[in-house]
Design a protein around this nucleic acid. Sequence first.
DNA 1: TTGTAGGCGTTATCAG
DNA 2: CTGATAACGCCTACAA
Lengths: 352, 352
Amino acid sequence: MIRRATMNDIARLCGFSKMTVSRALAGRPGVRPEARRIIAAAATKLRYEVSWVAQSLNNNRSGVVGVATPWDGLIGSNFLAEIFRGFSRAMDESALELALFNTESESFNHGSKLAKLYRQRKVDGLLVVAPHSDDAFLKTLRRLHVPLVVVGEGLPDASICWIACDDSKGITFVSQYLFSLGHRKIAFIGGPENLNSAARRRKAFVDFVRAKALRLPPAYFQTGDYTIKGGREAARRLLKLSDRPTAIVAANDITAFGAMESARQLGISIPDELSITGFDDLPEASERYPSLTTVHQPVREMGKKSAKLLLTALAENKLPKGHTKMPVSLVVRESTGPCRKVNRTMRPAREP
Amino acid sequence: MIRRATMNDIARLCGFSKMTVSRALAGRPGVRPEARRIIAAAATKLRYEVSWVAQSLNNNRSGVVGVATPWDGLIGSNFLAEIFRGFSRAMDESALELALFNTESESFNHGSKLAKLYRQRKVDGLLVVAPHSDDAFLKTLRRLHVPLVVVGEGLPDASICWIACDDSKGITFVSQYLFSLGHRKIAFIGGPENLNSAARRRKAFVDFVRAKALRLPPAYFQTGDYTIKGGREAARRLLKLSDRPTAIVAANDITAFGAMESARQLGISIPDELSITGFDDLPEASERYPSLTTVHQPVREMGKKSAKLLLTALAENKLPKGHTKMPVSLVVRESTGPCRKVNRTMRPAREP
DNA sequence: TTGTAGGCGTTATCAG
DNA sequence: CTGATAACGCCTACAA
C-alpha cells in the first residue's frame, strides 16, 4: 500500500505552491485557467483524492450524519427501510455519509457514547428514528445542542425538531370507515407503551369509541408490540372471546398481519367474518392476501424531508427547529367488508 | 456552542505539557501516577473528549467501517438485520462505527464514489453484504487493496475474502427430505440470476434431480427474485400446471412465503396437498402459519465472524484472507408432509 | 494571480 | 518521568 498523494506532491510535480493547488482543486476563484488545467492533470496522474480527515480537522466538521434508532424493533422492518431510502435520496448530492447507531445499546442510551459521538466530532448531526419515549439520550442531546431531527415520533418536548404523521387522524379514518360498514364491535390492538405515537393512536381510538358511544368490553383493548407475534397473540385473545369483535383496528401493519394469521388459524374468514385494518401502508400491505386496508403515511417522504431539514440546518450552522405532521390517508383494500349482523359465535350477537 | 476543550487547555490548566497530557489520557506508560490523577481531573472539569479527527490525521485511520449492500433487495429484510446484529456484536468493544453505503447507487457501483471512500480514508475497511455477481465495484476494490470481507456470497474470485453458507448442501437437504416423504414431482423456484448463491442453489437442485433420475417438466424450474411477490407469481405458474408439483423447493424463505400465499389463494392446503420448503431460516419462518420447513444458516454468526475477521486484519494491518463456508442444517416444521399419491388435479397423477 | 506563514488537535521522536 | 519539536494534510489570512 503506497502512500497517497497529497497536495504537496501535486505542487512539487507541477511547480505551483500547495496553496494554488488547493484553490484550483476546490474550484475557487483566483487561479489562471491554464494553471487549473495543469494542476488537474497532475492530480489525475497521481490519483489524488483530498484527505477528508484533514479537511475535517480544519472545518471542525466530520461529514457524517448519525442515524440512531432502536435496532431490535426496527432494523429488519420495511418502515425503517423506507425512511432510509428517503434519507439517501436527500443526501445523494451532499457528500455526507450515514453512520448507524443502536439506541438500545447500553452505552448509547446511557449517554456515555453519545456525548462522545458529537463532542469527538464523529457526527455533525443526528437523525433519530422512532425513539422510545423513555429514551434518556434525547435529553442529553438537547442539553449538548446537538443538531438533530426526530423522525416518526412526535415528542412532547417542544424544543426538539420532529417529523411525524398525524396518528390521531389515521386511527379516526379507519375507525370511521369500519363504523360506516356497520361494525359496532370493534377491537383495538395497540403498540408498545414506550412509543408516543402508539399512545396517540390508542387515545384516538378511545376517543372515537367515546364519540360514537360504543359500549365495548375492556378485553377489546389489547396491547401488542408492533411485531407479527404480538399481533397474532393479541388477536387470538380477541377472537377467543365469547363475544368476539367483528372488526379489529391494529395500530400498525405488522400487528395487522399477525392478526390476520390468527384469524386464518382459527378458520375465521377475512373480511367475511372479520375486518382488519392496519397503519403505515408498508409495501407488503398491498401484497398480502388478502391485501390490507390501512392508513397510508408517507414514510419515505418523511425520511427525505427530515434529512433535508438537518442538512439545511447544518449548512446554516444552526439547530433544526419546528414540528411537522405529515398528512395520512385511508387506503381501502380487501381486508375490510360490511359487518354481518350475526357472526358464528354460539350466542347470537348483541344488537348494537 | 462553545469551543471544545483541547489537550492544550488541559495542559495550561494543570501545568503539564501537551505531551504528558496525551500520554496520561491515552493510558500510556511513562507518567507519574500523581500526574495522571491531576490530568484526569482537569480533563473531567473541562469536559474534554479527544478529537477523533485529529487522531485520524495522525493514524491515517478513520475508525469507520463501511457496510456496502444492495438496498433495494436487502435493506428491509431480516436477513440483513441479522447480519447487522452480528456486526454490532463483534464491534461492540472496538470503538469503530458502521457507515452505510448503497451498492445500487450509480456513483457507488461505478466506482467513482468507491475510490474516494477508501482513498479519502472515510472508511478503514468494508463489509460487503450479498453483492451481485455483476457488481463492478468489487474488482475496483481488489485493485486498490481495500481491506474487505464479503458476507453471504461465495465468490469465484479467490483473492477476495468471503463468508457464506453451504448452499449446495442446504438444497440437497431439503430435496432429500422431500424425496424421503415420497415426493417425486418437486418444483424449484430459484433466486435472481445475479447472485452467485442463487446460481449454486439452482445447480444443487438440478444435480439432485439428475441423481435421482426424476423426470420433471421444464416448467418445474422457475425463477423468482427473492421477494414475496416473485415467490407468489412463480408458485402461481406452478400450481396452475395441469400436472402440478406436490412439493416446491424455494431458494429462500421469502420466496417460500410468497408461494404459501399463492397456494392459500388457490385453496391448496399446506402440507396436505402441497409441501413447501425455504432457505435461510429467518425468524419469521417459525412464526408463520403454517411454520416453514427450511434450511437454517447461521446468519448472525456470519455477520459476527466477518466483522471480527475484518477487525483483526485491520489491527494487523493486512488484508483479510480466506473463505469460510458455514454449515447449514435442515429444520423440519409444518409446511412439509408425506406425498399423497393422487392430488386434486382432474387427471390422475403420473406414477413416479 | 500566486506564495508564505501559521494553525486545526493529536502523537512520534528524541532530548533533557 | 517530562517536555520541545515536528509532522499529519488542508485551509485561512495575509503578503507580494
